Amino acid sequence: MKLTMRKIAEMAGVSVTTVSLVLNNKNVRISKEKKNQIRDIADEYHYVPNSSAVSLAKNKSNTIGVVVPNINNPFYSALIKAISKDLELVGYYALTVNTDDNHANEQIQITQLVNRGVDGILLVPTNDLYAQGELSVDDFLKSIQIPFVLVNADSDLQINKINLDSYEGGYLATRTLIQNGHHEIAIVTGNEGYVNAESRLDGYKKALKEVGIPFLDKYVFRAKYDIEGGYAVISEIKKLNKVTAIFFCNDLMLYGAIKKENEHGNNLFNSYSVVGYDDSYVNEIFNPTITSIRQDVAELGSRSVQILFEQLHGNSKPKSELLHVKLINRMSVKNLNV
């Protein structure tokens, strides 16, 4: 039998209000013996407070909705872990939902989180939303009626947001290939409008321009940020005979290209120097180990939580932060200068 406050009150011969006050360590005019009796009954029958009722009474759930587009992506898995850890430290819990990178699902999931009474939302938006254009993005973000932080994406709106510097990442990845003697460099970035896709492409362009290498549209390939995306484009890249290096703007894309080549008895690394993006932990397992852009997921998660908590505690001024990334050099880039 589930023990309720009403049942405890009946067993102790007091009112429900008295039980509530005692179990919440509030002042109440009853004897010490009666207080102990109430606590003993609760302990004996393993009383658990009704969290929904407590949340309703306090107008607070101590729960934060965490919305991500692809929970199978190691980057998002690591981000969820970092956010959950930081929330737990301050007595909050993460209610995580996966949108499958589908905006219609994203809308449904956020509505459900609001209806469940979460105190705020950490939103990693879908590429599907951003592909619909800036007006659609703005309209959707304006429709969210509870405190939230836009995570790992950008917006011109005056809202709380935090992102990683994709322009810097695109530049660093391309520059290291150039420094190793590569001039014919293909880039595999996200589809038109995808989150951070254009920034990474702009960083690529900047690195080329610095050393006078012409930018060629034919070296730009677009795909979904997943294994299937890389799997689909590698055959097209191979038709460009001069290409010696490929910058994949997402590690999953790179893994898809590796998979396709393996199926045809080829080793991608024998044909191209490669730089990835996200620096998944498995990059150190491949032979050769993979040079990649590392994003500080722990810092992204921690700062996201801090910005949201500032909003929850009355700071109405929106914050916008951009975190640096760094290049992790390994063995997947051949030096053509030697």
Rank of each mutant, 00 (worst) to 15 (best):
60 K>C: 08
83 I>N: 13
58 K>R: 13
40 D>Q: 14
55 S>I: 01
38 I>Q: 08
91 G>Y: 06
78 A>P: 09
83 I>H: 14
33 E>S: 12
70 N>A: 14
48 V>G: 00
80 I>K: 07
83 I>Q: 07
69 P>W: 06
55 S>N: 10
85 K>Q: 15
35 K>C: 09
48 V>T: 12
46 H>D: 08
52 S>Y: 05
90 V>A: 09
39 R>I: 15
75 F>V: 09
57 A>R: 07
56 L>Q: 00
70 N>D: 15
52 S>A: 13
60 K>P: 01
34 K>R: 10
74 P>G: 09
81 K>T: 15
45 Y>K: 11
35 K>I: 13
86 D>K: 10
86 D>Y: 10
78 A>I: 06
57 A>L: 03
70 N>V: 03
81 K>Q: 14
67 V>G: 08
89 L>C: 02
74 P>E: 10
75 F>E: 06
74 P>I: 08
34 K>G: 03
67 V>C: 07
73 N>Y: 09
76 Y>G: 10
48 V>M: 09
90 V>L: 09
74 P>V: 11
51 S>I: 12
89 L>V: 04
80 I>C: 15
40 D>H: 12
73 N>D: 13
76 Y>L: 10
82 A>H: 09
37 Q>R: 11
84 S>N: 14
33 E>P: 05
67 V>R: 04
44 E>K: 11
85 K>C: 06
81 K>H: 12
78 A>N: 15
35 K>N: 06
63 T>N: 08
51 S>R: 10
73 N>C: 08
65 G>M: 01
62 N>H: 13
72 N>F: 15
86 D>N: 15
44 E>R: 14
46 H>M: 06
77 S>R: 04
84 S>C: 09
50 N>E: 02
52 S>N: 08
90 V>T: 14
36 N>S: 13
53 A>K: 02
61 S>R: 04
92 Y>I: 04
38 I>W: 08
65 G>S: 05
68 V>P: 03
93 Y>A: 10
50 N>A: 01
73 N>A: 06
82 A>Q: 12
47 Y>T: 04
80 I>W: 10
66 V>W: 02
67 V>W: 07
55 S>F: 01
75 F>Q: 10
54 V>N: 00
39 R>E: 05
60 K>F: 02
93 Y>Q: 15
62 N>I: 01
51 S>T: 09
61 S>Q: 03
74 P>L: 12
46 H>C: 03
91 G>M: 02
92 Y>Q: 09
84 S>K: 11
43 D>T: 06
52 S>M: 13
33 E>H: 03
50 N>Y: 02
38 I>T: 05
50 N>W: 04
62 N>V: 00
41 I>F: 10
